[in-house]
Design a protein around this nucleic acid. Structure first.
Lengths: 212, 212
DNA sequence: GTAGAATTGACAATATTTTAACATAAGTTG
DNA sequence: CAACTTATGTTAAAATATTGTCAATTCTAC
């Protein structure tokens, strides 16, 4: 029944949510698409179009109720669910993500961390112990883990992703610099940091060339 | 003179570079757009179209020379330059980025780290010492810093970005969960990790709903 | 309660992006 | 070296995405 929403639209929803959250904090009760468009530096038309993919959240002559819209977007993004997640790779990046408290507020609960380095086993991040890789399969099966976060070097990522999928993982947040090859029913969100840095590099050089 | 290349195209270049690098490592000398399209799971047409934004790198009947194309894309991305960068925020995320050796291979040289927490001052990441925020302005001016990486909580990000820009920074890699407000001549690349996690959350719930 | 102002949701018009098609040039084979 | 194959670069077509417009509805003020 859901028509297919483009990833471009989905990609904008978290930003809407962020701005609406800020408005909530400032006790703003209502906002029109054109006011919001000024704040967010996008067109009012785009805001209305995006929101109307999911149904009419506003009211003519009034605009949008901030609280209501915030909650609706949260629901669309699936943030009313609770997700259990594990982190594979307990280096600085893994620890950073494990320590990020805002994820927990959104319903993402860190259940375990794994690493192959013996010296890391047993250390903990906010009370969550780092376990050896051998324990991974049984841990996933026994703790209803929804999401696996991959913060290991690219060499290990593909084999580890196979272990994850074989043991029932259906969503991977992939920070390894490689494309995973998983069945279509497994959702993968890639964060390729060096790609992002290269884009910045391009924009620096391109700006410099055009303004030399 | 450069016509304006869309950010969609730029965003794909690092991935091309990654696959070409792997082919180089395997001593593959030449590749056609259709072979590459199979590897990368995109259309051959898109590859040719993307590359032709920058000129003809291939040869009819032959395809593309892997080494040559790799170098050309590197140049386009500005990777033949060397960039000095600093990291503001020496928490786990800052340390993770500072410790990532591949950045150095690409010409991104970590020159300094900064934090406001007294207990972090003087600690070091790969020989680079963490300095107090007071030293930031003079350090930028005296060490030709090109890029500042912002890995601090959102509250501090906007004021710190003003200090950066006032002291000559022209590029910011922003991990703080807030939109910066900087002059147009300052390049900003945002990495909003929680946005990325929310996208994953959406795709999980959306898949579940459509396959219930 | 009525008139006027505000603002959505829907639709139409543009603009951009992606994919397909193909003429042309270069490589390859016997 | 001629015929055939390969594969680019380019142009055209199709698909998506974004922006603009406006009728219809609701709010607000008097």
């Amino acid at each position: 029944m859901d028509k297919d929403i483009s990833q471009a639209v989905i990609g904008r929803l978290p930003r809407y949510l962020r701005y609406l959250g800020e408005l909530k904090d400032k006790n703003v009760e209502r906002i029109s698409s054109s006011e919001l468009s000024v704040l967010m530096k996008v067109t009012a038309s785009q805001i209305r179009q995006d929101l109307n993919n999911f149904g009419g959240f506003g009211q003519q002559g009034y605009g949008y109720n901030v609280d209501y819209l915030y909650n609706e977007i949260s629901k669309i993004l699936g943030l009313e669910h609770q997700y259990n997640f594990i982190i594979i790779g307990a280096g600085n990046l893994g620890k950073a993500l494990g320590g990020y408290l805002n994820f927990e507020k959104r319903g993402f609960i860190l259940k375990g961390m794994f690493d192959k380095a013996p010296e890391l086993i047993g250390t903990d991040v906010r009370g969550v112990k780092v376990m050896p890789m051998e324990d991974l399969p049984s841990f996933i099966r026994n703790n209803s883990i929804d999401i696996a976060v991959l913060t290991i070097p690219k060499e290990g990522a593909v084999p580890v992703s196979k272990v994850l999928v074989d043991n029932g993982i259906r969503a991977i947040w992939n920070f390894a610099h490689v494309d995973l090859d998983v069945p279509e029913y497994v959702q993968v969100e890639n964060v390729h940091l060096s790609d992002s840095l290269m884009k910045l590099s391009y924009n620096i050089s391109s700006y410099n060339e055009n303004n030399a």
